[in-house]
Write a protein that binds this DNA or RNA. Structure first.
Lengths: 346, 346
DNA sequence: ATGAAAGCGCTAACAC
DNA sequence: GTGTTAGCGCTTTCAT
């Protein structure tokens, strides 16, 4: 049992145990641990041997009291959102290489929960945090970012000074979707946007609305343009979908701000006997795994979440290294065409 | 800015700041913090007032060095698994009430990743950990459980001594599925199980295989019983599905160990022109959100993940409070009938 | 009931 | 290049 960090006496193996075992000072061990400057090769190997043999593991708590914890906080908001796993993988791929740990905060998209999680991460002395898809406002974020290096992913705040933002170019994404629909001959194209309740000018949905409006205008279809605000709660959404599908002004095509709405709408449309895409074409946003299922086959805008995660982690590291001037990075999304946009040519 | 834990001088608010402000000793403040015995009402209110005014937040790191961190580690394996969010919500509902924080470890189902995460949680001095759906073996878990109060969810290890287990009654779940298929007149019922590579007698899949075998035997259908081992990697799965669907011995019904396999199979079957459930009935396991989509409508066994999470968190608290004798709890699952099992009577 | 003081395991000046 | 030592912010005896 030499590898459990407890020696034969049942005493915990600390930096002192290692120092004694290696016949050096605690400072020497600490320096080896941190790859600090000024250790001879001989000393280093001696210490490393002892560490190995004793199964020593540095206490994160003790470290956190003075130096770095080598741990990053990642706040994932909206645990069910299919977009998050890919972002997380991207972040992880960068942090792993850098030898950093991750502490995840999971939370429903409630502001108080988010605040609690951020404070928890500050309390835990994270070296930096990445906040994904938050509902929090710019002022709150600025104030936290003052205390801890911060990167925000999936939340537009282009004038932020204290933190970086990584976003999909949501305006372009919406334009891609609308243009694809126009190319298929659609004119009466409506958009389904995120309900008012949770809206906030920094959110992604309004950006997508801008792209939608722009594309419609540019194509001279401004008269058709209309945005349907969808409720965010689940229950009333069923009614909203029905209302939309049975309305005499039902559009011929729909651009949805998220697959979260597009998928239920697609389902309801088919259930109601409509043909997709003939009676109603649909393009969603996020390219979630479900959209790719053959029975669903929902065309969608792909944000490349993994890339966003990677870029975000890299930005955080450069910020932790001392960069002060904020970076606001947009990543170009792509359209994934599927059956909800056009029938495959048989 | 009294609420950011930093006072006007820019110095961090510590327990000493609070003690000075309240005119008491640091020991007194500590006692109030921990609701320790032996503090007068007067002192308590004085201290609480100061804490409030200064916006003091105890340092988790410092706490971790001696006492409890009031933080639980939750290890969620397989970030995409749709079963996990519900378990997490269950855990959270209990810990929140108890005033405990959660630190989440997210990991692909790779043993070395899992080991790293568990050790990270021990390093971070979590007060206890909940491990969900791990691939780790019983011996490894026992050895970690010796160092930290541990509860394992979704992993059968009924003889474990050092930790508790919370599981769906997977044998019963499988029986429910098979019996429902038999009731619909099926005889030639095959099972799709988790591939050999990742198998481990403690996993859930073998339990479901037992239930399948038992139900088939009891119905006198032992001659039809066969278990198809599915590869876990994604690529070869497409071929495995095709082989299954085009085989001359294609069964009339399928029980899948997980929706993860059932959904792609259902999709492929429909794409291949088969009628579900007429040509092939399917019952999955997990009742994931996708299964409920009308276009999918996959019958599935519901594990009630939220309840499992709640029960797991409660077990952990009682273990942290001193219980030594292990608990191994089974939770009865239910069948959610949908179109993949029977056509709705029109 | 309250406080003084000794650590917990580590980092980072600073001295040698 | 290596060691000594003073904290970091808290908990916890042990006096008072």
């Amino acid at each position: 049992m030499a590898d459990d960090g407890i020696n034969e006496d049942g005493a915990r193996v600390t930096i002192r145990t290692v120092a004694a075992d290696a016949g050096v000072s605690v400072a020497a061990v600490s320096k080896v641990l941190r790859n600090a400057y000024g250790v001879s090769e001989a000393l280093r190997t001696k210490v490393e041997t002892s560490i190995e043999r004793l199964g020593y593991r540095p206490s994160v708590a003790a470290r956190g009291m003075r130096g770095q914890t080598f741990t990053l906080g990642v706040m994932l908001v909206g645990i069910d959102n299919p977009f998050l796993p890919s972002v997380y993988r991207g972040i992880e791929s960068v942090t792993e290489k850098a030898g950093y740990k991750i502490m995840v905060g999971l939370g429903a998209a409630r502001k108080e929960t988010e605040v609690r999680l951020i404070e928890q991460m500050i309390d835990n002395r994270m070296d930096g945090i990445i906040i994904v898809a938050t509902q929090l406002g710019g002022e709150v974020l600025e104030s936290y970012a003052q205390k801890i290096p911060t990167v925000v992913i999936g939340h537009h705040e282009a004038t932020a000074q204290q933190f970086d933002t990584i976003n999909s170019d949501d305006v372009t994404g919406a334009e891609l979707a609308v243009e694809a629909l126009i190319k298929r001959g659609h004119k009466d194209i409506a958009m389904v946007a995120l309900g008012l309740r949770r809206k906030n000018m920094a959110d992604v949905s309004p950006q997508r609305e801008r792209g939608y409006q722009r594309a419609m205008q540019r194509a001279g279809l401004a008269e058709y343009a209309r945005i349907i605000q969808f409720p965010t709660a689940d229950l009333p959404r069923g009614e909203a979908i029905n209302a939309l599908l049975t309305s005499p002004q039902r559009p011929s095509a729909l651009f949805c701000w998220s697959d979260l709405d597009a998928i239920p709408i697609l389902n309801a449309a088919v259930e109601a006997g409509l043909s997709v895409p003939d009676d109603l074409a649909i393009v969603g946003y996020d390219n979630s795994p479900v959209a790719a299922l053959p029975l669903i086959s929902l065309a969608s805008i792909d944000q490349d979440g993994e890339r966003m995660g990677r870029v975000g982690a890299e930005a955080l590291f450069s910020r932790m290294a001392g960069r002060k001037v904020p970076e606001h990075i947009l990543i170009r999304p792509t359209l994934i065409p599927r059956r909800s946009l056009y029938r495959p040519t048989v």
